[in-house]
Measured scan of single mutants.
Amino acid sequence: KAKLLVLLYAFVATDADTICIGYHANNSTDTVDTILEKNVAVTHSVNLLEDSHNGKLCKLKGIAPLQLGKCNITGWLLGNPECDSLLPARSWSYIVETPNSENGACYPGDLIDYEELREQLSSVSSLERFEIFPKESSWPNHTFNGVTVSCSHRGKSSFYRNLLWLTKKGDSYPKLTNSYVNNKGKEVLVLWGVHHPSSSDEQQSLYSNGNAYVSVASSNYNRRFTPEIAARPKVRDQHGRMNYYWTLLEPGDTIIFEATGNLIAPWYAFALSRGFESGIITSNASMHECNTKCQTPQGAINSNLPFQNIHPVTIGECPKYVRSTKLRMVTGLRNIPSIQYRGLFGAIAGFIEGGWTGMIDGWYGYHHQNEQGSGYAADQKSTQNAINGITNKVNSVIEKMNTQFTAVGKEFNNLEKRMENLNKKVDDGFLDIWTYNAELLVLLENERTLDFHDLNVKNLYEKVKSQLKNNAKEIGNGCFEFYHKCDNECMESVRNGTYDYPKYSEESKLNR
């Protein structure tokens, strides 16, 4: 008799109507990190870190770059004969040098303040090359056809396309004075040089004057150069050297050249137009028929994500570079809930034993079982409120962090190594801060989002509990077992918050 009662009780308990509160689960393989956990499985997430590029040089917003090819900045601007293909260059979106560009200054020497000139050019998007001192009329008392084997072109001695090597005419090199007034309405880049012979005999042979000088002056520039005559090792078949100089001439300003020898005179100059998204990159990537809004030396990035880990040097509207390998923000729920887990921000989770793959029309909802059958029903209101809140948060985070910009490298010469090392340390410090901030932001927001979901499920549970009161009992896994019969209409009233407690209280009292 006792065995019969136990079996009867078990049958009745199993047959009781139930309603459970749960949440969506799926077959997603997404994982995120939080402050407290690593690799948390979630139903949905968004990636904030771009880690792919196309490996190509592309047009930037429809404008092609200027590819210097086998030449570098120095060779292009001075007019190395091997860089003749660059003479027609007028406009570009950015400038590309190759790491091993070999054609710079063909006659050995240095372009002074080269690093600063590169910085200036990094904001130039177009130029006009014009004859600042016409070759045939500007130097009537001097020979202007100086050439050298060091600047050979097609097997013949030649010289820079933008400079003139002035030497004596006959047996004399009379003092020369020439000036140019900038009437271009924009900055003009003027380049010139000073020749330093290897011996007094060479000085006399070329310029006749043993104590020659070169003077260059404008409103913002004033220097006097004296040739340094000295024996030097042979470089590119030359014992002599040429140093090259430049200045930016403001609109309306005048530049005056005065010399008694050794002047490498300007022939062509450049009127410059600035462009905020221009820059110089060093890259071996090849040019393709493609378009982008962000270019790196590795390749083009076409992404609206706020961060990238491809390269710190970028041109155009680019994500911020960070050292992170993963920045994924959760938008959905835990896919593998932890039992009795309390989140960092106070939300209680884990009283549900598992997510439901059968509930596909919402994030949170119900599963019921009664004599009429069983089924899932999503709670659309709480789901939609959660979707709206999380979507707004993700968009806000992306908008705040998605300050796209150009980031170019800084140039230092060989004598500025300590400054370069200090600059690298400062840049590394800023990069570490950006990386830390980005990672911390994602970790915190992921923790908040998961706790937010847990709290929403808990609130749904409490909503049902407050309606049923003692007409049902909690069975410990997020479910309630009714003390009365609850048909589909009754189940719907529980879900929509209109459950009639008094209607079922007498039946429940008897069954309790």
Rank of each mutant, 00 (worst) to 15 (best):
A16Y: 02
Y180K: 05
F225A: 02
A10H: 05
T31A: 09
K184C: 04
L86C: 08
A16L: 04
R236Y: 10
P134H: 03
S137C: 00
K70Y: 01
S157Q: 09
V32R: 05
R232E: 09
Q203I: 00
Q67H: 02
C83R: 12
P108A: 07
G55D: 11
R129D: 05
W165F: 08
N145C: 06
G193V: 05
C58W: 09
E37D: 09
Q238E: 02
T74E: 04
T148D: 01
A217N: 00
Q67E: 12
A212G: 10
L66A: 01
D110N: 05
N100V: 02
A265I: 08
I264R: 00
S198R: 05
I63W: 01
Y160T: 10
V32M: 04
Y268C: 07
M242L: 09
L49I: 02
H239V: 07
W139F: 15
R224P: 00
A89G: 11
Y94D: 07
D237K: 10
F133S: 02
P174S: 14
W192E: 05
W246M: 05
H195F: 07
S126C: 01
E202A: 12
E202T: 13
G62R: 09
P174Q: 01
L164T: 01
I95E: 03
S157C: 01
F257K: 03
G104S: 13
G22F: 02
V194P: 03
Q238F: 04
E116P: 07
N243W: 02
E119M: 11
N209I: 15
T29Q: 06
A217C: 12
G62H: 15
E250H: 12
E119S: 11
V32K: 14
E116S: 03
S158I: 00
V42M: 12
P233L: 15
T18M: 08
D15S: 12
T143G: 15
E136G: 12
P134W: 01
I256K: 14
E131F: 04
S150L: 15
R236P: 00
L248C: 08
L87C: 00
H195A: 05
E119Q: 07
P251I: 13
K38P: 06
E115Q: 15
G69F: 12
N211D: 09
A64S: 10
W246Q: 01
K38D: 02
I19V: 09
S101F: 03
F270N: 04
L5G: 02
L7K: 04
H24I: 13
Y213I: 08
R90T: 10
L8T: 01
N141Y: 07
N162A: 01
R224K: 15
N209S: 13
P251K: 03
N27L: 05
G79K: 04
G252R: 11
G109N: 05
S85M: 07
G79F: 04
P266I: 05
A271K: 13
D171Y: 00
S122D: 02
H195I: 03
S208H: 10
G210A: 15
I280N: 04
S85A: 13
L77M: 14
Y268A: 03
